[in-house]
Design a protein around this nucleic acid. Sequence first.
RNA 1: GGCCUUGUAGCAUAAUUGGAUACUGCACCUCGUUACGGCCGAGGAGAUUUGGGGUUCGAAUCCCUACAGGGUCACCA
Length: 584
Amino acid sequence: MQELIGNKLKELYPELTENLIQIQKTRAEFEGDMTLVVFPLLRVTKKNPVESGNFIGEFLQKEIPMITGFNVVKGFLNLEIDSQYWLEQFNSILETKSYGQHTATDKAYIVEYSSPNTNKPLHLGHLRNNFLGYSVAEILKANGHEVVKTQIINDRGIHICKSMLAWEKLGNGETPNSSGLKGDKLVGKYYVAFDKQYKEEIAELLEAGKTKEEAEKQAPILIEAQEMLMKWEKNDPETIELWKTMNGWVYEGFAVTYNTMGVDFDKLYYESDTYILGKDIVEEGLQKKVLYKKEDGSVWCDLSDEKMDDKLLLRGDGTSVYMTQDVGTAVERFKDYPKTTGMIYTVGNEQDHHFKVLFVILKKLGYSFANECSHLSYGMVNLPTGRMKSREGTVVDADELMQDVVDDAKAIAEERGHLEGMSEEQRNSLYKTIGMGGLKYYLLKVDPRKSMMFNPEESIDLNGNTGPFIQYTYARTQSILRKQSAKGTIEIETEVEKSELDIIKHLAGLPEMITEAGKNQSPALVSNYTYELVKLYNSFYQSVSIFKEEDDKKQNLRLLLTQQVSETVEFTMSLLGISVPEKM
RNA sequence: GGCCUUGUAGCAUAAUUGGAUACUGCACCUCGUUACGGCCGAGGAGAUUUGGGGUUCGAAUCCCUACAGGGUCACCA
């Protein structure tokens, strides 16, 4: 339709360019379906806005039979489109298999998310990260792109050595089995224990007259941890053994958490494998004179053209830094997946600078894929008490939070749910569906780029713009369809109510929404769309009766609408990683 | 301090990327009152979009400035 209008306009004004033709959905408070913004056209119409609008409106109404009327408000031409057109649209939607799913493209993306350190359990921030990354991957798939979900596990370095050392000193051989503690929690416990002793030692040194800086560097336990890292790098068998054991515990714990979260990965990269990567590339960069070496032997990238400070890529002693690995890993990934056209890093906005630099360096080194790499930079999750800080114990643990929302869902479902005839197992799975649905929706409905507020006291709302509200509407559509299923398509002559047309119009916008969500990498667009759809459906549900309707055609239209809404909700919610229940 | 970023009713948020009278939810007020599954629907009130200036036919959106948050400025990861 938009295209048709555009083409007709070009017939009328051959000198028009595409970007001057702005067509959008008419706002609810005005009459009409589509709106042409006439301001940009004034140069070619040579009339004032209202005259132009009327002139073009008359022209379009004459040329396009589906346009039944128009009105002009200021510089906006609102076109009214025949309900028959919408019914035809609806029929073609009904006939489209997996409506909303775009046809395959030749693009392939690597989406990285999660990428935790292995020295402590996952927390609320990881939840936003994982839900976001998973959802963006699903949205890209819906756009017809191939996607590889990946993460890099930060399994080596001083942080894990701290946990290892504390466990050696204080652990008395404690294991997940002996203590009943989840593996990642156990390792996290010793990370905290390390920090506690470290602080005590600093305090002692301060008392002994050292400066703060000296104390922080000279604390014996820290020096021991650094020695342990050296041993690790030299492949000391005992250290490696302990490292493998403790990381193993963590992975067992993470597996449980990821399972509850409902996220997965196609390929894992471990920092212990990749931290050496990149050195060769740096060598090449030196030869190509993209990088330079200082007198002390350290290697740098000159970023003065980009107005940034130069970036270190190799230390004077030849060891690598974080950036070196990231360059190496990026190149490695494109080798592992040659079809890849782009890579998306789901990482918090505290690393904005890092990724800006990474992409520039990749480009300077001559990797053209750098242009297709992007940082999906999401805002921090704040608590009413402020920022989460592990040292202050204000971190919201992922497992605990998820358990809490599932418990809440249980309490509410037991009170008001339709649980008759469900087995214990089905009930538990339902509580999980509702609780996790609420949590995911809560974290995904906000624009990823913005930092957000999370109030654990309130936990998850059930009314308004929430996951359970949408799930409830889905369950209701299923209940209706169980009673009577819809048949075939509709006859174009069927009389339609406004509330029915509103749903059809919104359904017609699904493919465009999918495109936008893909371009913007924004699950928030998907959740807003779904919420809007569900609201329209509830309003329709309230204003007309389905089973009391005597006219078969009308009844079938309502059943078909119910069916299509049901399918669409299931589809868009799946893009958010949220499942929907048959009953609740 | 330099650079980056954010600021929208009491709270939480949206705005088709420069378009109309700034969307929506929670909380608050009024109406419908157990139905096709009420975790519902209809309506009301609440905003100088942080303040000030500018560009534009048109600004929450772009520019300048002030104020207030956040992030980042390691041969750490």
